[in-house]
Protein backbone atom coordinates (compact mmCIF):
# COMPACT_ATOMS: atom_id res chain seq x y z
CA UNK A 1 0.00 0.00 0.00
CA UNK A 2 1.35 3.37 -1.02
CA UNK A 3 0.27 6.47 0.91
CA UNK A 4 1.14 10.00 -0.20
CA UNK A 5 1.07 12.74 2.42
CA UNK A 6 0.96 16.33 1.17
CA UNK A 7 2.67 18.79 3.49
CA UNK A 8 3.36 22.50 3.45
CA UNK A 9 5.99 24.67 5.07
CA UNK A 10 4.38 27.63 6.82
CA UNK A 11 5.78 30.51 8.90
CA UNK A 12 5.72 29.95 12.64
CA UNK A 13 2.49 31.55 13.72
CA UNK A 14 3.96 33.73 16.45
CA UNK A 15 6.24 35.31 13.89
CA UNK A 16 3.91 36.27 11.07
CA UNK A 17 4.63 39.79 9.88
CA UNK A 18 3.35 41.62 6.86
CA UNK A 19 5.51 44.06 4.94
CA UNK A 20 3.38 47.24 4.98
CA UNK A 21 4.73 48.47 1.61
CA UNK A 22 4.41 45.29 -0.45
CA UNK A 23 1.52 43.76 1.55
CA UNK A 24 3.11 40.32 1.40
CA UNK A 25 4.27 37.99 4.16
CA UNK A 26 7.76 38.71 5.39
CA UNK A 27 9.41 35.32 4.98
CA UNK A 28 13.06 36.27 5.24
CA UNK A 29 14.59 35.39 8.60
CA UNK A 30 11.27 34.06 9.86
CA UNK A 31 11.32 30.56 11.33
CA UNK A 32 9.13 28.09 9.52
CA UNK A 33 7.55 24.79 10.42
CA UNK A 34 5.36 22.05 9.01
CA UNK A 35 1.75 23.15 8.77
CA UNK A 36 0.24 21.75 12.01
CA UNK A 37 -2.65 20.01 10.23
CA UNK A 38 -0.16 18.28 7.94
CA UNK A 39 1.54 16.83 11.00
CA UNK A 40 -1.77 15.13 11.74
CA UNK A 41 -1.96 13.93 8.12
CA UNK A 42 1.47 12.35 8.51
CA UNK A 43 0.46 10.82 11.85
CA UNK A 44 -2.65 9.30 10.24
CA UNK A 45 -0.46 7.71 7.58
CA UNK A 46 2.08 6.47 10.14
CA UNK A 47 -0.70 4.83 12.16
CA UNK A 48 -1.72 2.88 9.08
CA UNK A 49 1.92 1.92 8.59
CA UNK A 50 2.11 0.78 12.25
CA UNK A 51 -0.53 -1.85 11.45
CA UNK A 52 1.56 -3.42 8.68
CA UNK A 53 5.06 -2.01 8.72
CA UNK A 54 6.48 -4.02 5.83
CA UNK A 55 3.68 -3.44 3.37
CA UNK A 56 2.89 0.23 3.77
CA UNK A 57 5.05 2.88 2.14
CA UNK A 58 4.67 6.56 2.84
CA UNK A 59 5.87 9.28 0.48
CA UNK A 60 5.71 12.89 1.65
CA UNK A 61 5.49 15.59 -0.96
CA UNK A 62 5.65 19.36 -0.81
CA UNK A 63 5.85 22.25 -3.24
CA UNK A 64 7.91 25.22 -2.22
CA UNK A 65 11.27 26.97 -2.28
CA UNK A 66 14.43 24.85 -1.71
CA UNK A 67 14.26 25.34 2.07
CA UNK A 68 10.89 23.53 2.11
CA UNK A 69 13.09 20.42 2.14
CA UNK A 70 13.22 20.91 5.92
CA UNK A 71 9.62 19.78 6.40
CA UNK A 72 10.31 16.68 4.30
CA UNK A 73 13.34 15.83 6.44
CA UNK A 74 11.15 16.32 9.50
CA UNK A 75 8.54 13.92 8.09
CA UNK A 76 11.22 11.34 7.25
CA UNK A 77 12.56 11.70 10.82
CA UNK A 78 9.15 10.63 12.12
CA UNK A 79 8.93 7.56 9.93
CA UNK A 80 7.95 8.45 6.34
CA UNK A 81 9.79 6.30 3.79
CA UNK A 82 10.34 8.69 0.91
CA UNK A 83 10.07 12.35 0.05
CA UNK A 84 9.78 14.52 -3.06
CA UNK A 85 10.27 18.28 -3.26
CA UNK A 86 8.55 20.16 -6.07
CA UNK A 87 10.64 23.24 -6.56
CA UNK A 88 11.06 25.49 -9.57
CA UNK A 89 11.12 29.24 -10.15
CA UNK A 90 8.10 28.70 -12.39
CA UNK A 91 6.02 27.36 -9.46
CA UNK A 92 6.25 30.68 -7.57
CA UNK A 93 3.04 32.60 -6.91
CA UNK A 94 0.78 29.56 -7.37
CA UNK A 95 -2.80 29.79 -6.13
CA UNK A 96 -4.65 26.69 -4.92
CA UNK A 97 -5.53 25.64 -8.47
CA UNK A 98 -1.97 25.83 -9.80
CA UNK A 99 -0.72 24.13 -6.62
CA UNK A 100 -3.17 21.24 -6.97
CA UNK A 101 -2.39 20.97 -10.67
CA UNK A 102 1.34 20.67 -9.96
CA UNK A 103 0.84 18.23 -7.06
CA UNK A 104 -1.47 16.10 -9.23
CA UNK A 105 1.18 15.85 -11.96
CA UNK A 106 3.79 14.81 -9.40
CA UNK A 107 1.51 12.20 -7.81
CA UNK A 108 0.79 10.74 -11.28
CA UNK A 109 4.54 10.53 -11.80
CA UNK A 110 4.90 8.60 -8.51
CA UNK A 111 2.84 5.80 -10.07
CA UNK A 112 0.42 3.70 -8.12
CA UNK A 113 -0.97 5.49 -5.08
CA UNK A 114 -3.65 3.99 -2.83
CA UNK A 115 -4.32 6.82 -0.43
CA UNK A 116 -3.54 10.54 -0.31
CA UNK A 117 -3.76 12.30 3.03
CA UNK A 118 -3.69 16.08 3.50
CA UNK A 119 -4.21 18.31 6.52
CA UNK A 120 -7.64 19.96 6.55
CA UNK A 121 -6.07 23.30 5.61
CA UNK A 122 -2.85 25.28 5.87
CA UNK A 123 -2.65 27.85 8.64
CA UNK A 124 -1.25 30.56 6.36
CA UNK A 125 -3.75 30.58 3.48
CA UNK A 126 -6.59 28.80 5.34
CA UNK A 127 -8.35 27.92 2.07
CA UNK A 128 -8.84 24.16 2.61
CA UNK A 129 -9.05 23.88 -1.18
CA UNK A 130 -5.95 21.99 -2.26
CA UNK A 131 -7.11 18.60 -0.95
CA UNK A 132 -10.48 18.54 -2.75
CA UNK A 133 -8.98 20.11 -5.92
CA UNK A 134 -6.25 17.52 -6.00
CA UNK A 135 -8.77 14.68 -5.66
CA UNK A 136 -10.85 16.18 -8.45
CA UNK A 137 -7.87 16.50 -10.77
CA UNK A 138 -6.86 12.89 -10.06
CA UNK A 139 -10.47 11.74 -10.35
CA UNK A 140 -10.47 10.23 -6.86
CA UNK A 141 -13.22 10.06 -4.26
CA UNK A 142 -12.46 12.27 -1.28
CA UNK A 143 -13.58 13.05 2.24
CA UNK A 144 -12.74 16.21 4.15
CA UNK A 145 -12.53 16.95 7.91
CA UNK A 146 -11.81 13.32 8.75
CA UNK A 147 -11.40 12.59 12.46
CA UNK A 148 -10.96 8.82 12.34
CA UNK A 149 -9.75 6.28 9.78
CA UNK A 150 -10.48 2.56 10.03
CA UNK A 151 -10.29 -0.34 7.60
CA UNK A 152 -13.48 -2.24 6.77
CA UNK A 153 -11.74 -4.38 4.16
CA UNK A 154 -8.21 -4.22 2.77
CA UNK A 155 -9.39 -1.77 0.07
CA UNK A 156 -12.32 -0.09 1.83
CA UNK A 157 -12.04 2.53 4.55
CA UNK A 158 -14.56 3.49 7.18
CA UNK A 159 -13.99 7.14 7.93
CA UNK A 160 -15.59 9.49 10.42
CA UNK A 161 -16.09 13.13 9.37
CA UNK A 162 -16.85 16.12 11.52
CA UNK A 163 -19.11 18.58 9.73
CA UNK A 164 -21.12 21.60 10.75
CA UNK A 165 -24.24 19.41 10.68
CA UNK A 166 -22.73 16.70 12.87
CA UNK A 167 -20.70 13.52 12.60
CA UNK A 168 -20.84 11.47 9.42
CA UNK A 169 -19.51 7.94 8.91
CA UNK A 170 -18.62 7.04 5.34
CA UNK A 171 -17.43 4.01 3.49
CA UNK A 172 -14.63 5.04 1.12
CA UNK A 173 -13.14 2.66 -1.47
CA UNK A 174 -9.45 3.03 -2.25
CA UNK A 175 -7.80 4.81 -3.97
CA UNK A 176 -9.04 7.97 -2.28
CA UNK A 177 -8.02 11.28 -0.75
CA UNK A 178 -8.68 12.38 2.81
CA UNK A 179 -8.14 15.68 4.58
CA UNK A 180 -7.79 15.21 8.32
CA UNK A 181 -8.42 16.97 11.63
CA UNK A 182 -6.27 16.86 14.75
CA UNK A 183 -8.46 14.07 16.16
CA UNK A 184 -6.61 11.42 14.11
CA UNK A 185 -3.90 11.24 16.77
CA UNK A 186 -1.11 13.15 18.47
CA UNK A 187 1.85 13.48 16.09
CA UNK A 188 4.70 11.27 17.18
CA UNK A 189 8.19 12.29 18.22
CA UNK A 190 11.23 11.88 15.98
CA UNK A 191 12.95 8.51 16.01
CA UNK A 192 16.72 8.25 16.30
CA UNK A 193 17.12 5.77 13.46
CA UNK A 194 14.73 7.56 11.13
CA UNK A 195 16.39 10.92 11.80
CA UNK A 196 19.81 9.52 11.04
CA UNK A 197 18.47 8.09 7.79
CA UNK A 198 16.66 11.35 6.98
CA UNK A 199 19.87 13.35 7.35
CA UNK A 200 21.53 11.23 4.70
CA UNK A 201 18.46 11.00 2.45
CA UNK A 202 18.86 12.78 -0.87
CA UNK A 203 15.50 14.43 -1.48
CA UNK A 204 14.70 14.39 -5.21
CA UNK A 205 13.75 17.83 -6.54
CA UNK A 206 11.26 17.88 -9.40
CA UNK A 207 10.75 20.96 -11.57
CA UNK A 208 8.56 21.69 -14.60
CA UNK A 209 10.77 19.67 -16.95
CA UNK A 210 10.59 16.59 -14.67
CA UNK A 211 6.81 16.88 -14.59
CA UNK A 212 6.58 17.82 -18.32
CA UNK A 213 4.51 20.88 -17.51
CA UNK A 214 4.40 24.14 -19.42
CA UNK A 215 5.35 27.39 -17.69
CA UNK A 216 1.89 28.73 -18.50
CA UNK A 217 0.14 25.99 -16.51
CA UNK A 218 1.92 26.47 -13.19
CA UNK A 219 2.82 29.19 -10.70
CA UNK A 220 1.41 32.69 -11.04
CA UNK A 221 0.74 32.22 -14.76
CA UNK A 222 -1.29 29.09 -14.17
CA UNK A 223 -3.30 30.68 -11.37
CA UNK A 224 -6.87 31.89 -11.72
CA UNK A 225 -6.55 34.12 -8.69
CA UNK A 226 -4.01 36.69 -7.63
CA UNK A 227 -3.37 38.32 -4.30
CA UNK A 228 -3.92 42.05 -4.73
CA UNK A 229 -3.51 43.10 -1.16
CA UNK A 230 -2.74 41.59 2.24
CA UNK A 231 -3.03 43.78 5.29
CA UNK A 232 -3.17 43.53 9.07
CA UNK A 233 -6.60 44.36 10.44
CA UNK A 234 -6.68 47.53 12.48
CA UNK A 235 -6.42 46.81 16.14
CA UNK A 236 -9.42 47.76 18.19
CA UNK A 237 -8.15 50.42 20.56
CA UNK A 238 -11.14 50.92 22.84
CA UNK A 239 -10.55 48.15 25.31
CA UNK A 240 -11.41 48.51 28.95
CA UNK A 241 -10.69 46.01 31.66
CA UNK A 242 -13.24 46.06 34.44
CA UNK A 243 -12.00 44.95 37.83
CA UNK A 244 -13.53 44.29 41.21
CA UNK A 245 -16.06 41.81 42.56
CA UNK A 246 -18.58 40.26 40.19
CA UNK A 247 -21.37 42.60 41.29
CA UNK A 248 -19.06 45.63 41.02
CA UNK A 249 -18.02 44.56 37.53
CA UNK A 250 -21.64 44.06 36.51
CA UNK A 251 -22.58 47.52 37.82
CA UNK A 252 -19.68 49.15 36.00
CA UNK A 253 -20.47 47.32 32.76
CA UNK A 254 -24.08 48.43 33.00
CA UNK A 255 -22.96 52.06 33.40
CA UNK A 256 -20.61 51.88 30.45
CA UNK A 257 -23.19 50.33 28.15
CA UNK A 258 -25.78 52.87 29.24
CA UNK A 259 -23.37 55.72 28.54
CA UNK A 260 -22.85 54.37 25.02
CA UNK A 261 -26.57 54.49 24.46
CA UNK A 262 -27.26 50.79 24.18
CA UNK A 263 -31.04 50.56 23.58
CA UNK A 264 -33.20 49.39 26.45
CA UNK A 265 -30.84 50.50 29.24
Amino acid sequence: MHIVVCVKQVPETQNVKIDPTTNTLVRQGVASMMNPFDRFALEAALRIKDMDRDNVNITVITMGPPQAKEVLIDALSRGADDAVLLSDQAFAGADTWATSYTLASAIRKLGSVDLIICGKQAIDGDTAQVGPELATLLDLPYATYVSRIEFLEPRVLKITRQTDEGTAVWKVPLPALLTVLKDVGIPRVRSYRATLRARRYEVPIWGISDLRLSKESVGLKGSFTQVIKVFSPQRAKDRTFIEGSVSEQAARLYELLKKQGVPGL
Partner: peptide
Amino acid sequence: EEQRLLQEIAYEIVKERI
Protein backbone atom coordinates in the same frame (compact mmCIF):
# COMPACT_ATOMS: atom_id res chain seq x y z
CA GLU B 1 26.92 13.57 15.33
CA GLU B 2 25.10 10.46 16.58
CA GLN B 3 25.63 11.40 20.23
CA ARG B 4 24.37 14.95 19.61
CA LEU B 5 21.34 13.56 17.85
CA LEU B 6 20.53 11.39 20.87
CA GLN B 7 20.65 14.50 23.08
CA GLU B 8 18.54 16.46 20.63
CA ILE B 9 15.83 13.81 20.42
CA ALA B 10 15.74 13.27 24.18
CA TYR B 11 15.51 17.02 24.84
CA GLU B 12 12.73 17.42 22.26
CA ILE B 13 10.72 14.88 24.25
CA VAL B 14 11.45 16.88 27.41
CA LYS B 15 10.23 20.12 25.85
CA GLU B 16 7.23 18.80 23.98
CA ARG B 17 6.02 15.99 26.20
CA ILE B 18 7.54 15.96 29.69
